[in-house]
């Protein structure tokens, strides 16, 4: 009996770790290759392969920062992402509070309508967004991106924060209502602090989206002063055509913020996805 389970376990063990190693390589090798290439000379990159550079070319990073004007790109992207998150979470938590903790006619319909926005492919809204942005005079203005990024993430944010706020026990509020707490005090003093984790999760999703978004930024801005990081590294691809080292360095720098956010927030991201999955 022991023998059979033993001999069955060895191929199973091998198969398991083969699959995991393959996926680990598939996931990490592109990034490792990117990292190694970002430290090579352009000549070394052009000769190809996974070889290590003769000496580490940190100069690529210095060149990337100056050629691509990374300080400006980063300022724009940070501004857009942070303000979009602030707007999105503020608007979303106000709505979520009412949707989670109040009774009023049409509440369930409103909740379904708001969260159903997730089903729309945003790419199909390129034309109306463009018309809207140009008509209200926000073309080539970063405010347009802040508004759109905040709005596009409303379905996810309303869903996440509402489910966090629903989970807060009624008793927490009842004591406060007894004490004569007003509507807005209940929101600020009781529900909002208790839903912090939900706000952080929603904010993380919105930040990653806003930092990574490309096509809307490309369509709604036109000058160098309003370029975001994604546009910057994309446009400078042509500039870097013969200068691969700094290009790889610029890509590395552009992914650092979301990787950093992921390192610190991955538990919230995974539990946020899980909350959606368990319901679905």
């Amino acid at each position: 009996m022991k023998q059979t389970t033993g001999s069955q376990k060895i191929p199973g063990f091998l198969l398991k770790w083969t699959v995991l190693s393959l996926f680990l390589i598939l996931t990490l090798m592109p990034f490792l290759w990117l990292l190694i290439s970002s430290l090579k000379t352009t000549f070394e990159i052009e000769s190809g392969g996974f070889s290590f550079p003769a000496s580490l070319q940190f100069i690529n990073y210095v060149n990337a920062v100056s050629i691509a004007n990374l300080p400006l790109l980063f300022t724009n992207s940070v501004l857009v992402a942070v303000l979009a998150v602030a707007l999105n979470v503020a608007v979303g938590s106000l709505a979520a509070f009412v949707l989670a903790r109040e009774q009023f006619p049409g509440r369930d319909f409103l909740y379904v309508a708001l969260t159903a926005g997730i089903l729309i492919p945003i790419i199909s809204f390129l034309v109306p967004y463009f018309i809207l942005i140009t008509r209200i005079g926000l073309y080539n203005n970063l405010i347009s991106l802040i508004l759109i990024y905040a709005a596009v993430n409303i379905p996810v944010t309303v869903f996440l924060i509402t489910s966090f706020m629903k989970a807060i026990p009624k008793e927490m509020e009842e004591a406060a209502v007894m004490d004569g707490c007003t509507f807005s005090t209940r929101f600020w003093r009781i529900i909002l602090p208790l839903a912090q984790s939900g706000l952080a999760t929603a904010g993380t999703f919105c930040f990653i989206y806003a930092w990574n978004e490309f096509i809307l930024a490309m369509l709604f801005t036109s000058s160098e002063s309003t370029r975001t990081v994604q546009l910057g590294i994309r446009f400078f691809q042509s500039q870097f055509q013969t200068d691969y080292g700094p290009m790889f360095a610029a890509i590395m720098l552009s992914i650092l913020p979301t990787v950093a956010v992921y390192v610190f927030m991955h538990n919230k991201i995974i539990s946020g996805l899980t909350a959606g999955a368990v319901k679905g």
């Binding site: 996926f23 680990l24 996931t27 990490l28 990653i208 930092w211 990574n212 490309f214 994604q230 590294i233 994309r234 890509i251 552009s254 992914i255 979301t258 990787v259 956010v261 992921y262 991955h266 991201i269 995974i270």
Partner: peptide, 13 residues
Amino acid sequence: TIFFLPNVISAVA
């Protein structure tokens, strides 16, 4: 955590 990582990296990169 690692297998989910590519989902947070920009499509451009």
